[in-house]
Amino acid sequence: MIIVMKPTAGQAEIDHVVEKVEAVGCKTTLLEGTNRKVIAVIGDKRDIPPEYWDTIPGVEKAVPILTPYKLASREVKKSDTEIKINDQVLGGKKIGVIAGPCAVESQDQINFIAEGVKKAGAIALRGGAFKPRTSPYSFQGLKEEGLEYLARAREATGLAIVTEILSPEHIDLVSSYVDVLQIGTRNMANFLLLEAVGKCNKPVILKRGMSATLDEFLLAGEYILSHGNPNVILCERGIRTFETHTRFTLSLSIVPHLKLLTHLPVIVDPSHGTGVRELVAPMSRGAIAVGADGLILEVHKDPEKSFVDGPQALTIESFEKLMKESGAVAESIGREI
């Protein structure tokens, strides 16, 4: 349920409504609208009719929310959420591109890539310090050493840093180095981790689970929102199907569908979604055409020598070309990169 406050409602009236809601055992989240404020009520109190709240001073109306994802729903917030990433904004007119290697390998490697992607127009640098791998014998990342390399690359370029987090125990450590936390596909249903990042103040990129439905994806985002973190970015990265010509099946149709259902920004990962370098650029253009708010791409100095996911990584030169082509698509739909 949401409680819509009157445009004239003052802080004392808002505080009174919050007290009344919490007195019946529910939690509240205050949402700032353009003309008025809305209080989202989290909790199951079906025995209290909406009309009960309408009698409280300052309340315009109470509206039941039918979707299971309350805070992520457009029923709660009609306008798009814009998330600040350092001096950049994701979710507005500008399409944000996040780029970098799948894994941090050395200081020289990450600095070279950071300088290249920034020059081409990226708003943030991605790089894995902790790597979840299918095989226990594969490269697992440089861990804190990798985080230190990322932090130095930020000092050199000014780019915000995005990296994946694997467990609640790592949050304090990783948050001390980076600007945006990423939840990978394998952890979309790791509810303890979702709750933990919900309690921190860093923006979170939530990747869709490789077998997750749209509703499951949004409910994973709801875990983060319901624990107090409003800065959730949804990322489509491909799902596992019977098809074998690509690493995964990149479901671009979910982007406009998500934009209908949620106010949260939606980005796309064509690198993991295809696993094929030659397909990354056309799927990036397609993602922008269907309404994505951003892209997250793998870029490497020398993909053939990459420790992880070389076949899908772009070179700096191919990334520059992609940015120019994608910019033309963005301009054609009234946006920019």
Score class of each variant (00 low, 15 high):
A129S: 15
A120I: 02
E148C: 02
L150Y: 14
E236R: 12
L194D: 14
V197G: 05
I113Y: 01
G228N: 02
Y137Q: 09
L234R: 04
L218C: 11
A153W: 11
G128T: 10
V117H: 03
I113P: 00
I224E: 11
F112V: 07
L219D: 08
I113C: 01
I183Q: 07
A153S: 09
L218N: 07
P230V: 03
P132L: 09
S176A: 14
F191S: 04
D179I: 04
Q182K: 05
P132I: 13
K119T: 15
V117T: 01
S175W: 04
Y137C: 06
L206E: 00
E216Q: 15
L206R: 00
L192E: 13
K143R: 15
S135Q: 12
G127E: 08
S176I: 10
N231T: 01
K202R: 14
L142A: 09
E145Y: 08
F130E: 14
A124V: 06
L225I: 05
T163C: 11
V204Q: 12
A189D: 04
L181H: 14
E236W: 10
V162Q: 08
A151D: 06
I183S: 05
T134G: 02
K119F: 04
I165D: 06
G116M: 05
A156F: 00
E222Q: 13
E236S: 02
K118L: 05
F130Q: 07
L147D: 14
K199T: 09
I205S: 10
L219R: 13
N229L: 01
V117F: 00
E169K: 07
F130L: 15
V117P: 02
I113H: 00
L142T: 05
E115M: 10
K118W: 01
Y223S: 12
G228K: 02
G221S: 01
A160N: 14
G121Y: 04
I123Q: 07
V232E: 02
C200L: 07
M188P: 03
A153C: 10
N201P: 01
V180D: 00
V117E: 02
M210R: 10
A151N: 08
I183L: 06
